[in-house]
Amino acid sequence: MRAILILLFVLLLAGNARGELPDALAGDWRGSLLVTGADAGTGLPVNARLDPTRDGFEIAINAPGAKRLDARMVPGPAPDVFEVEEGGGLFGFLGDGDDRSVLDGRPLLWARRAAESLVVYRLQIVADGGFELLHIVLTPAADRLEVSVQRRLDGVPEPGLHGFLDRRS
């Protein structure tokens, strides 16, 4: 009996580990991103918020002129991989119950944990066969949040964005 309880406890811990957001990423962040390799100057202001939930986390990234990225993520089919919670909404423009596939234009959003970083991806295929692939890396850097953004249009990489966000008090 005791062995079964220990096993259940271990399984419970393992289950929680699958869905954990790295502690240092949690919070409300604000800052700006610059084109990779560009001189210091006016960047793109960005707000990011990451909140742990019981079984995953919520993420919201907002920048002027860009559609808000807003999703509730839950553990996916493999450890350290996250998917959008069914019916949880996606980027704020899909309502609940959207059963389109990625080939119908529904954005495919997922994330993975890599050491202390969180990597968030989004693929969207449009009606003419073109596509956009976003690759966002969020890494704790002392008391800041380092953000790198890669974007591919039809497979061709665009100049990347990089910067540090500060925790909002």
């Binding site: 991103l33 610059l34 084109v35 100057g41 006016t42 960047g43 793109l44 202001p45 960005v46 920048a63 002027p64 002129g65 860009a66 559609k67 808000r68 990225l69 980027f91 969207q124 449009v126 003419d128 073109g130 596509f131 956009e132 976003l134 953004v149 974007r151 249009l153 039809d154 665009e158 100049p159 964005l161």
Partner: peptide, 19 residues
């Protein structure tokens, strides 16, 4: 203009148009 360009780079809105 710079912010506008950066916003376009960050994506999220503009997708390839028809050709």
């Amino acid at each position: 203009c710079r912010r506008l360009a950066l916003a376009a780079l960050l994506c999220l809105t503009t997708l390839p148009g028809p050709v």
